[in-house]
Design a protein around this nucleic acid. Structure first.
Lengths: 339, 339
DNA sequence: TTGTAGGCGTTATCAA
DNA sequence: TTGATAACGCCTACAA
C-alpha cells in the first residue's frame, strides 16, 4: 500500500509538507503543492482514512439509527429514499455514514455495543421515536441528534420533517379550486403521528374558504395494509352517507383502496368523484385512473438532514430547530372540475 | 474519552495485558481478564475502532456498491431488503458496511475517490452489472467481490442469487398439481436478466409433465411500470387466443396488471382463470384476490452475501462460487383447482 | 502469565 | 515555507 511517506519521498519533501500540500494548506508554495499532487496521483496514493480519523481525534462518522421492528415488519420505500438521499449527500463530504438498528427495551444495553462498532460524531434517527428512548439516547451519548420525519414531535430537538400540514392544505385547496364544495376526508386517528397535521391542513383549507367537512373517516391505524384501510373506509362511508364530490386521502394507498370500492359500486372516477392522495408511491401512477397526489420528497429529507447534522457537529448551524420540507402537487387524472 | 490506558491503570495491569484481556486472549489468566473487563465496563470504556483498524492494518470495512441510475430512477423495495439483511448480518461481526453509488462511464475516474472514502477489504454489488465495468473493478481494486442477484451471470465471480429457475418451476408445478393443463406464461424477453431463467423453469415443469405452453407473452421490458406491462400483455393475449385456465407470471406486478384486465372483461379470478406470480410484493396480499406467489427472500440474499464475502476476505470460504437461495410458494386466493 | 517498546499512517506543533 | 518529531489509541512481537 502506497502511503504518504512514499509520496513525500518521490516529491522530495518532508512528510509534514506532503501532508499539508495534500490538504491544500496555504502554508505551502503552489509549486510544491503541484509537485506533491503530481506524485500522489502518479503513484496512486490513497490516504488511509482510519489513520486520518485517529490523528484528527474525530470519527467523521454519522450513525443512522433505524427501528428494526418497523423496518423489517413493514419495509417501506420511504426508508430507501431517505437512505439514498443520505448516502448521496454524504458522498462529497469527509463524513462516512453507518447504519444501526435498534429495538425497544434492550435499547440501552445495546447502545454501548453500537458505539463500539460505530464510533460516531452524530446520530440521525429515521423513525418516529418514543420519548423515553430519545431521552436515554441524549443523556447517554451527548452527541448531536437529528430526527427525520418525526412529524414535528419533540419541538426542541433538531429535525427535518415533511410539511404534512401544508401538503394537506394544498391538496384540499386544489380540490376547492376545482369547484368542489362537498369534500370528504380519509385519514388517520388524531393520535396517529400523521393524524393531527393532515387533519389540520384539511380543516384550515376548508375554513379559509368558508366550507365545512362533509364526510370524514379517521380510523386508519397501522402503516400496514393501508389499501385495506382505504377499502374499509369507503365501505363504511357508503353505508352511512351521501358521497361527496371529492376526497382528500392522507395517503395514496388509502385513496387506492377507496377508489376500488367506489368503482366496484359503479361510480366513475373522476367523473363522479374526484380523489387526491398524498405520498406519490410508485403504484400511484400505475392505477386507473392515475392518481393525482401530493409528492413527498423523502430523498430531500435525507439530504437536508445529513447536511444539517454535519453543520451542527461542526458548530456552525444557525437555522431552525425543525426544518420543514415542502411538497408539490402532481396532477394526474383522478380529479375533475365541477360546476 | 476513556481509553485503554485508563482501563489498564484501574485494573493495575499493563496496556498490553489490558488489550489482550479485552480481546479474550488465552494468554491471560481468567482472573486478570475478569478484573480488566470489570473496569472497562465500570469506567465505560469504548474502544476506538479506527485505532484498531489502523493497528491491525485492515479496514474491516465492506463497501456496498449500487448503481445510482437504477436506484434513483426505479427505487425498488428489493434494495431495501437486501440492505436490511446486510446491515443486520454485519452487526455481530467486526466488519462495518459502507455504501457507495456508481454511475456508468465516469466509473473508473470515480473509483479512486470512492476508495479514498471507503477504505475497504471487499465489495458487494447489488445490481446487474456490465461486463466491462466489472472487469475494471476487478483489475483496479484486487479485492474480493460478491455479486448479489445477478441472475447467475459471470459464472466465475462469487455471487448470491435467487433461484429464478427453481421458483418458476415450482410455481408452474403448483398449477399443474392443481389440475391445470393449459397454462399461460407472462414474462420477460429472453435477453432480459430474468428472461431465460424464468422461462426455463416454466418450460421444464411443463415438459416434465408432458405439457406444452399454451399462450405466451414475453415482451415485458423495463423494471418500471411493470403493472402496465401486465395489462398490455393480457390485452394482447385476449385479442389473439383462447385464454388458458391458469397463468404463471414472472412478477407479481405482471400478474396484477393482467388480472385487472381480465376482471374488467368479466372473468372471475380464480374461478375462471388462476394466477400465480413471483416476488411477493407488499401489494400482492392487498389486491383482490390476494395473490398466490413465489416469495423471494431478498433479505436472505443480503445476509448470505455478506457472510460469504467476509469468509472470502478471511480466506476461509470453501463453498460454491454461486450460492442459490431458494424461495417458497405463498398460497393465497388467486388459484383454484380444476377438474 | 505479564510488561516493554515499537509500529500502524496521519496530523499538528514547533523550530529552523 | 519547510522539516523534525511527537502525538492519536491500539496491537503485538519479544523479553522478562
Amino acid at each position: 500500500m502506497v502511503k504518504l511517506k512514499d509520496v513525500a519521498k518521490k516529491a522530495n519533501v518532508s512528510l509534514a509538507t506532503a501532508s499539508l500540500a495534500l490538504n491544500d494548506s496555504k502554508l505551502i508554495k503552489e509549486e510544491t503543492k503541484k509537485e506533491v499532487l503530481y506524485w500522489a496521483e502518479k503513484i496512486n496514493y490513497i490516504p488511509n482514512i482510519y489513520a486520518r480519523k485517529l490523528a484528527k481525534g474525530k470519527s467523521y462518522n454519522i450513525c443512522i439509527m433505524i427501528n428494526s421492528k418497523n423496518f423489517f415488519e413493514s419495509p417501506n420505500i420511504y426508508y430507501l429514499k431517505i437512505i439514498g438521499g443520505v448516502i448521496k449527500e454524504s458522498e462529497d463530504t469527509e463524513y462516512t455514514v453507518s447504519f444501526s438498528f435498534y429495538r425497544d427495551k434492550e435499547e440501552l444495553k445495546l447502545l454501548s455495543k453500537k458505539r463500539n462498532k460505530h464510533n460516531m460524531d452524530g446520530i440521525m434517527i429515521l423513525d418516529v421515536i418514543e420519548k423515553n428512548m430519545l431521552d436515554n439516547l441524549i443523556k447517554d451519548l451527548k452527541i448531536p441528534i437529528v430526527l427525520i420525519d418525526n412529524h414535528k414531535k419533540f419541538k426542541n430537538i433538531y429535525g427535518v420533517d415533511n410539511d404534512d400540514f401544508g401538503g394537506s392544505y394544498k391538496a384540499t385547496k386544489y380540490l376547492i379550486d376545482l369547484g368542489h364544495k362537498r369534500i370528504g376526508y380519509i385519514g388517520y386517528p388524531d393520535k396517529h403521528p400523521l393524524g393531527k397535521e393532515c387533519w389540520g391542513g384539511f380543516k384550515k383549507a376548508l375554513s379559509d374558504n368558508n366550507l365545512r367537512e362533509y364526510c370524514v373517516y379517521k380510523k386508519c391505524r397501522s402503516f400496514k395494509s393501508v389499501i385495506k384501510s382505504g377499502r374499509n373506509a369507503m365501505a363504511e362511508l357508503l353505508e352511512k352517507k351521501l358521497i361527496p364530490s371529492a376526497f382528500f386521502c392522507a395517503s395514496d394507498y388509502l385513496a387506492i383502496g377507496a377508489i376500488e370500492v367506489l368503482r366496484n359500486k359503479g361510480y366513475k372516477i373522476p367523473a363522479d368523484v374526484s380523489f387526491i392522495g398524498m405520498d406519490d408511491m410508485e403504484l400511484s401512477s400505475e392505477i386507473e385512473p392515475h392518481l393525482t397526489t401530493v409528492r413527498i420528497n423523502m430523498e430531500e429529507l435525507g439530504r437536508v438532514g445529513i447536511k444539517k447534522l454535519i453543520s451542527i457537529i461542526n458548530n456552525n448551524y444557525s437555522g431552525e430547530v425543525k426544518t420543514i420540507i415542502s411538497n408539490e402537487i402532481v396532477e394526474r387524472r383522478s380529479c375533475s372540475r365541477i360546476n
